[in-house]
């Protein structure tokens, strides 16, 4: 039994990892009050940039760095539009998503028939020898470990550091933050760029490591799920992590069900991860007090220091 379980759990963690990156990045951006609906587009730009860089150099690390750069660059476009030019965040974010889909499809044409070899997993000595847990948790891709580090870092940053406190304050009330003397726009720029960079890594992980190939629109709505995760996790990193792995788990489970020839239309099965994740998150996030305490009050609202 456990022998069958290990590959399922390993695959679950891998399937959830792109979401962990993208959603934690978006969480930080939203905590500063910036609602960037362009996660899907930023992930796709990260995916094609990462794939192209890895295909050219053969290095997965180069691919990830390219993903970071591409994600941050698309986020920069969004930041200039919404933070400097005061465009509406919802409209600009939707536009960014559509733009990212198109741009990545165009740039990805020459790469469609190329296949990469996924880099080897990295087994941590000793720890990976633990039965069941060892191979599941400690024989993963380096990037999976990195996503855990990111989770710890984001949690620590938001709730234990002064900079994180300032970031939350900016998302809570930019007017008050400005009155006390914090550079609201600058802080929001940084948070938005971080969100973009993480979405880019999530995308590059998909195209370089998870399914080492490029296909048009290969994120298949994961960017939107990442956005939903952040909201339904009521802006708390722990719940984002749990939601991402829940999505990963159901994704893998439905693959196995399809493989086993379950008598359910495959389209329905493919939609299960999205349905299950949203349903569970909606159920656990019904407490209005929790939402009130964690939701950034100024989310999605433009702010200009002089107005």
């Amino acid at each position: 039994m456990t022998d069958a379980l290990v590959p399922i759990l390993v695959a679950t963690l891998a399937a959830g990892t792109p979401l962990v990156f993208a959603a934690l990045g978006e969480l930080v951006a939203e905590k500063s009050g910036v609602l960037n609906l362009g996660v899907e587009g930023m992930m796709l730009c990260g995916a094609i940039a990462g794939f192209a860089a890895t295909a050219a150099t053969g290095s997965a690390t180069a691919g990830m760095l390219a993903g970071v750069a591409a994600g941050a660059a698309t986020a920069l476009v969004f930041a200039v539009l919404t933070l400097t030019l005061q465009a509406n965040q919802v409209a600009a974010g939707l536009a960014l998503s559509i733009f990212g889909v198109g741009l990545s499809a165009f740039a990805g044409k020459p790469f469609e028939s190329i296949a990469l070899t996924a880099p080897q997993a990295f087994a941590i000595p000793v720890l990976s020898g633990i039965p069941v847990l060892g191979p599941v948790l400690f024989a993963q891709q380096p990037l999976v470990y990195l996503s855990w580090a990111l989770f710890g870092l984001v949690s620590w940053f938001l709730y234990r550091t002064r900079a994180g406190l300032v970031l939350r304050a900016v998302g809570e009330s930019p007017v008050s933050a400005n009155a006390i003397g914090y550079p609201v726009i600058g802080i929001r720029y940084l948070a938005t760029l971080f969100g973009g960079a993480m979405a880019g890594v999530g995308g590059a992980f998909l195209s370089v490591i998870y399914t080492p190939m490029w296909a048009e629109n290969m994120t298949a709505g994961r960017g939107w799920i990442a956005l939903a995760l952040v909201v339904f996790a009521t802006w708390r990193p722990g719940r984002v992590l749990a939601g991402a792995y829940l999505f990963g788990g159901v994704t893998i489970a439905q693959f196995f069900a399809q493989g086993a020839g379950a008598a359910i239309p495959s389209q329905l099965l493919s939609s299960l991860p999205y349905l299950a994740t949203i349903a569970v998150l909606v159920l656990i996030s019904r407490n209005p007090n929790v939402i009130r305490l964690n939701a950034p009050v100024s989310l999605g609202k433009s702010y200009h220091p002089d107005s």
Binding site: R162, L165, V166, R168, A169, E172, S173, V175, S176, A177, A179, I180, Y182, R292, L293, N294, V297
Partner: peptide, 23 residues
């Protein structure tokens, strides 16, 4: 301030820390 410059979802301590440089 007359119109308070406080952050509703933060604690009293956090609010004070935000205005003190280096706390």
């Amino acid at each position: 301030f007359q119109h308070f410059s406080l952050f509703e979802t933060l604690t009293v301590t956090e609010n004070v820390a935000l205005a003190l440089d280096g706390a």
